[in-house]
Design a protein around this nucleic acid. Structure first.
Length: 228
DNA sequence: TTATAGATTGCCT
DNA sequence: GGCAATCTATAAT
């Protein structure tokens, strides 16, 4: 196991970083994603999103996600059917679906369900594990992070984590996260959350009552608008 | 062709 | 807590 779920200021980024060797971090396999979005959401909590760029690793533990279902979920981009924008949702499982929102932010999903059926998991918050200085640089923040409140600004929120990992539609949309050749992947270090909390999704108006948001209970890096 | 809402964030009061 | 920023997709004219 790499690190527990709670960030400790005593664990410096350098100490955390030496634990990682990108080549040995096998991406989670395609079959993992070929399931419904609710199951995939629960299973993804505690896994680690990893980016390799310029020989450096950025990694963050997944602590908050939301499930978006297929054509019957009014809040899902798949609701309108397959389009040039959302085709990834209908494609093979384990691919990155990246969209641009509010003229300012990218958001990252991973496609679920077998090919032909839509469904995805939105990444809403990560707990930084490695490459914190790189994340801070990408976010335009001070790299000398002393407090948890500062580290939270790196990846607590879907737009924030995308920026921290340099995720864009042009670069990452439809990327196969299960490929050994991918610079963006999700890995399993054996960590399992003690408790998962289920709540309504955040920031949507359609089907807002559906409880399809999942968070690791008590984790300090869950996005601010959280309603546990 | 024009209008509007959107799976957000950060700054201002 | 309110609201501007700023682009895209989709609905309305």
């Amino acid at each position: 196991m790499l690190n527990g779920p709670v960030f400790s200021p005593m664990q410096t980024p350098a100490r955390k970083q030496q634990v990682f060797s990108f080549a040995t971090l096998a991406p989670i396999a395609k079959a993992f994603y070929a399931r419904d979005a609710v199951t995939a959401s629960r299973e993804l909590l505690g896994k680690i999103l990893v980016r390799k760029e310029h020989g450096r690793i950025r990694a963050g533990r997944i602590v908050e996600v939301e499930a978006y279902l297929g054509i019957n979920d009014p809040a899902a981009h798949a609701a309108a059917g397959k389009t040039a924008r959302n085709f990834v949702l209908f494609g093979p499982p384990g691919h990155a679906y990246v969209y641009f929102i509010y003229g300012n932010h990218y958001c990252l999903n991973v496609s679920c369900e077998p090919e032909g059926k839509a469904g995805s998991v939105l990444f809403r918050a990560l707990e930084p594990v490695a490459g914190l200085a790189e994340m801070a640089g990408a976010r335009g923040l001070e790299s000398d992070l002393k407090r948890v409140s500062q580290v939270r600004l790196l990846t607590s929120g879907p737009g924030r984590l995308a920026e921290a990992f340099g995720i864009t539609r042009e670069r990452d949309n439809d990327k196969d996260l299960t490929s050994i050749a991918s610079d963006l992947r999700i890995v399993d270090d054996g960590f399992r959350p003690e408790k998962i909390v289920r709540t309504p999704r955040i920031g949507i108006t359609k089907a807002a009552h559906e409880e399809l948001r999942f968070v690791i209970a008590g984790n300090a890096f869950v996005s601010k608008r959280a309603v546990d």
